[in-house]
Simulated assay, not measured.
Amino acid sequence: MAIDWFHEWPQEALESVSFRFLQEVENIEVKESVSRFMAYVHTSVNQTSKEYLANERRYNYTTPKSFLEQIKLYRSLLGQRSKELTAKMERLENGLQKLSSTSAQVFTSLM
């Protein structure tokens, strides 16, 4: 039988790890703020898990792996949303070009 004990990561370590993983993400100017928020969320979950154990006598485990999965999920969603936003911007630009050309055609036909 093996028992694995995990010690909580300090706030600075969480921020450092999340900031390191966010360095690989392009076009995000708020990396430092996001990394601090990720660390805050993880520590908040740890604190709430302790309260949950005290109140409900049930465990909720958070591990370094769950923190890394949170970062991975954020990066995945950021990439997905970025692609969606780019597609919407292109669609808007195309629509504006159509409106402009139609307006020009209507104006010339009225002359």
Score class of each variant (00 low, 15 high):
Glu26Ile: 01
Glu12Gly: 05
Ser35Ala: 07
Arg91Gln: 15
Phe67Ala: 00
Glu15Gly: 02
Arg81Phe: 09
Thr108Val: 15
Lys88Trp: 08
Leu14Phe: 01
Leu53Asp: 01
Leu22Lys: 01
Ala87Met: 03
Tyr74Asn: 03
Asn27Trp: 06
His42Arg: 03
Glu12Met: 05
Arg81Met: 05
Tyr40Met: 03
Trp5Asn: 10
Phe37Met: 10
Arg91Ser: 15
Ala2Thr: 07
Leu99Gln: 05
Thr108Ile: 14
Glu51Gly: 01
Arg81Cys: 08
Val30Phe: 09
Val41Arg: 02
Val106Tyr: 09
Asn94Arg: 14
Glu12Cys: 08
Gln11Phe: 06
Thr108Gly: 12
Ala54Val: 10
Ile28Glu: 06
Pro64Gly: 04
Val17Cys: 08
Ala87Lys: 05
Thr102Met: 07
Asn94Pro: 07
Glu12Leu: 11
His7Glu: 15
Tyr40Val: 02
Val30Tyr: 09
Ser103Asn: 13
Glu32Ser: 04
Ser100Pro: 04
Val45Pro: 09
Ile3Gln: 15
Phe19Ile: 03
Phe37Asn: 13
Ala104Val: 15
Arg20Pro: 04
Tyr59Phe: 12
Arg81Val: 11
Arg81Asn: 11
Asn94Ala: 13
Leu77Val: 10
Gln97Ile: 13
Asn55Glu: 15
Phe107His: 15
Phe67Gln: 00
Gln11Ala: 05
Gln11Val: 10
Leu110Cys: 11
Ser44Thr: 15
Gln11Lys: 11
Asn94Asp: 11
Val45His: 12
Thr62Pro: 12
Phe37Pro: 02
Leu92Met: 14
Glu32Lys: 06
Glu84Gln: 02
Ala13Ser: 14
Gln23His: 10
Gln97Ser: 10
Phe107Leu: 13
Leu99Arg: 06
Glu29Phe: 02
Gly95Met: 08
Met89Tyr: 15
Arg58Gly: 06
Ala54Ile: 10
Gln97Cys: 09
Leu99Lys: 04
Thr48Leu: 15
Met38Pro: 00
Glu56Tyr: 13
Glu8Pro: 07
Thr102Phe: 03
Met89Leu: 15
Glu69Trp: 05
Lys72Ala: 14
Ser76Cys: 04
Thr62Met: 09
Asn55Cys: 07
Met111Trp: 15
Pro64Arg: 00
Gln23Asn: 09
Tyr40Gly: 05
Lys31Met: 00
Val34Trp: 02
Leu77Cys: 07
Ala13Thr: 07
Val41Ala: 13
Glu51Tyr: 04
Leu73Asn: 04
Glu69Tyr: 10
Pro10Arg: 06
Gln70Asn: 05
Pro10Asp: 08
Leu99Ala: 12
Ser44Ala: 08
Thr62Asp: 03
Met89Pro: 05
Thr62Arg: 11
Thr108Phe: 13
Ser101Gln: 09
Phe21Asp: 09
Met1Thr: 11
Glu8Phe: 07
Ser103Ala: 15
Ser103Ile: 13
Asn60Ala: 12
Glu32Asp: 04
Phe67Thr: 00
Phe37Tyr: 14
